[in-house]
Nucleic acid binder design. Structure first.
Lengths: 206, 206, 206, 206
DNA sequence: TATGAATGAGCTTTCATTCAT
DNA sequence: AATGAATGAAAGCTCATTCAT
């Protein structure tokens, strides 16, 4: 066994260092304002070295986006495979976002400010991920409508907007005000508020 | 008769032309990527002239933000003075956003992508406006809680997030997918969906 | 008689207003930093009007230089025609500069900072005036050497430099420190110091 | 052996190349007219590189001024430490200027046209250097007055003006007419003329 | 005469990217 | 792997000058 210093492993590690530094800088300055110099400085390396690991600044940003979407959709795959109820699937989504916010707040910040909104960053690839995520959430809504858990006189797509909107605005405000998530209890309370209001609000009329 | 060509009026008109051109360009490229050249071209003037009407690019962007916030808060003033119920006040907010989206979609787009989210654009002045808007919406929520229209076991601030979040995500998606608002009916349906789910979802338990 | 408002007189007056305003602005910012807008503002007119009276910014500056040199050389003509002694001619030069400094300090300032030194302003025409002035002063020196008033073992040209240098540095310091000339007595004292040191220092050995 | 190509040395060398190129360009066009492009071209590098070594155009100009004043005041320190007579100290000043003119005529040119006169370039720092230089020269004059070498009925400050004025006008004319200093003899002759006329002219009456 | 809107060349500065070492 | 010197395209802003009114 080559040990933890195998060349390939080193490479991955350094790549991760640059990746994290990039997230940190992009979070505070926005993608277009983040300079390679800033990222290199944050990573503690020379700026020339960034180009050994990433083809270009755009490439680095694409890697961040890809990482975000793959991780999110992977969670939805797992959630699907557990073949749980629609309510639990929605709860999984909410908890996933809150967990990532707790562990990698930069990623959520970038998603909120640079990926989910800024249309100037909308590469065709990114838009594709976006649509997939929306349509998978819409599927959960449709499933819930079939099971009479959610009212059917509002389009599944509209319900999707309302649900993700509440979640996003919560995150957005925490992100903009730099609020840390204080422990399990607060996370649970927020998750409950979002889920309860939505499920309650969209419950079919008896 | 002074006619419609009084010099001052001309000046205001040209300023508006540049303002609108700037909105259009900022909408499609984002603020930092919008070049003065683009704006001038969109306005059909030479770029030097932009500086006749606006001190700098930042000044132009500030003017757009100021216009947005003043118009929004003005609507809330009017809504307040009508001394209507909290539900009607929330309906006013929803309809205001949908109306602006119908008439000046660029403004809503910029609000969604550049003002409400991008923290790198957060001037202290802008943050101030933001807080005022949030706190005025929170007041409506508190008022509704007092009147037993909304449940009181969720903080007024959380209710604010959930409400504005749904609205924003609707707009955001329409904005990102360039969906036009097709007439009064669709606008009403969307408004109803947002309001009903929210009011229903946050109604006090009997 | 048309009175003081004859059109031509008006034109001359306005021209003089612009001229003086230009001197004031050029004095404080230097020629290249002086903007037409500044000059127009100082003159209390619109900037477009400057171009009715002067072909261009360079033209305006040339007018100022011409005015300076013509006035100076005119004084030397008068001094020559009085057929006075070389000492008196040198005294005339010193007093002329001090008088102009008292009445039109801007002109002296511009001469010191923009005309006599800055080689980047040296138009061929300006250089011509300069040489004429130098050579006429040199003539006075030569005349004084012939009359055994000044020593002959130092070239007349060198004496010219030393003489004008002392005068210029006096003016330069007053100009840079914005010292006003306080009355006849101070003017006389300065003139005496310059003249005495020079004449004494350059007196032939007995 | 590290050799002459140690990285730090290279850096200093390149910085010096840019510095000299800047002097050359500023000399011929004046500071405000000197473009970064000109300087880069004169230095044989791309203009982007200028910003690698100097923060800005103003920074580059400040470096030139600092170099000038530090070198000049350093000479005066050395001259003081030799504890020589006031006459010799004045001679040191004159020879210093003539030496620099011989070896680095650009520096003298810039001093004459851009530093010593142009009030639009007068940064507070520059003004401070200026005052120090003036007051140290004045000290020499006062010392000479105490020792009965110079007359005391003219203020030491006035004597300073007259002395530096002669020197400056010499240099100024050589500079403006691009006269090269032709060897030791001419330098000595000029120095003698300046010193002799001044010391003679300002000698106390017997 | 008088105004100031309009133009665009020209300049400084930034920064992604390349490449020699 | 790693550095940072070097390049130059690109963008913001200024301001002399023109011209319609």
């Amino acid at each position: 066994m080559a040990g933890s210093n195998a060349p390939n492993e080193n490479k991955k590690e350094k790549e991760a260092v640059i990746f994290d530094a990039a997230c940190k800088v992009i979070r505070s300055k926005g993608f277009h304002q983040a300079r390679i110099t800033d990222i290199a400085q944050a990573a503690g390396i020379s700026y020339g070295l960034v180009y050994h690991y990433f083809r270009s600044k755009a490439d680095l940003f694409e890697a961040i986006q890809r990482e975000w979407w793959q991780s999110l959709l992977n969670m939805m795959d797992v959630s699907d495979r557990k073949s749980i109820s629609p309510e639990e699937k929605l709860a999984d989504v909410v908890h996933y976002f809150l967990d990532v916010y707790e562990n990698r707040p930069d990623m959520v910040h970038i998603f909120i400010t640079e990926i989910s909104r800024a249309s100037s960053n909308l590469t065709p690839e990114n838009l594709e991920w976006f649509k997939i995520f929306m349509s998978r959430t819409e599927n959960i809504m449709a499933e819930a409508q079939s099971g009479r858990i959610l009212r059917s006189d509002i389009r599944a797509r509209y319900l999707t907007y309302i649900f993700l909107g509440g979640l996003e605005t919560f995150l957005s405000t925490m992100v903009l005000e730099n609020q840390p998530l204080k422990g399990r209890t607060q996370k649970q309370r927020i998750a409950d508020a979002i889920l309860e209001v939505f499920l309650n609000g969209a419950r079919p009329k008896p």
